[in-house]
């Protein structure tokens, strides 16, 4: 564990807490893409299959369980909570996300560390995570306004990916034989998507105008 990875994990946790706080405090999920949240639930369940086979540390196991439980809780709230579900922007959240799941799985079948069930699902989860934010960005683009908590949620998610890139650079330099091509390249793609969003978020915030992402 190095400081960059810890900072990445903490900002990731913070992003989820911000989202839960928004839903709990406002009893509303407007501006949140349920499709993105469902993709994250799939990402964590596919990636953490190793909970059954490998023990790394108490911290590692605890965080994995937190990520699985919190993502399922958010999806549950948006689908079934009697008050929260009414504010779901169903007509704006129309991204065809099965395409992302299919493409990520197809890529995992051809590019993985080992052709085993666990490794293919791990690679699948990495590719899917890289693009899981897309339905959320499309929803924000359509609704045209981003409330502070939703903006902070996406900001912390972006910070988490940026810290992980620093972590990989650090490990590459300090650990012999450390390479993470799959996670590294996917991580750069994912961080670029967030950086792009923040560029337009910042511009619209500075001009005090509606968010306008390029189509």
């Amino acid at each position: 564990m190095n400081i960059f990875r810890l900072a990445g994990d903490m900002t990731h946790l913070l992003s989820i807490l911000v989202l839960l706080l928004k839903i709990y405090a406002t009893k509303s999920c407007s501006g949140i893409s349920r499709k993105t949240q469902e993709l994250y639930a799939i990402v964590f369940m596919a990636r953490y299959l190793d909970l059954f086979t490998d023990f790394i540390s108490v911290y590692n196991t605890f965080m994995k369980l937190i990520f699985i439980a919190s993502s399922l809780a958010i999806v549950w709230c948006m689908r079934f909570h009697p008050v929260v579900r009414r504010s779901y922007d169903r007509e704006l959240d129309t991204f065809r996300y099965f395409f992302l799941v299919g493409a990520s799985f197809a890529l995992a079948l051809v590019w993985h560390d080992k052709f085993t069930l666990q490794e293919v699902f791990w690679a699948f989860s990495i590719y899917l995570e890289a693009v899981a934010i897309l339905p959320q960005l499309v929803l924000l683009q359509r609704s045209g306004n981003v409330d502070n908590l939703t903006g902070q949620y996406v900001f912390f998610l972006g910070a988490y990916r940026a810290f992980y890139i620093l972590n990989w650079i650090y490990r590459y330099m300090t650990e012999p034989r450390f390479t993470r091509w799959i996670a590294g390249i996917s991580g750069v793609v994912q961080t670029a998507l967030y950086a792009d969003f923040f560029y337009y978020y910042f511009i619209s915030w500075k001009n005090n105008s509606k968010l306008k992402l390029p189509a």
Partner: peptide
């Protein structure tokens, strides 16, 4: 190579 070692990241 270590790319196929146990995945120790989240």
């Amino acid at each position: 190579s270590s790319s196929t070692d146990v995945k120790d990241e989240l």
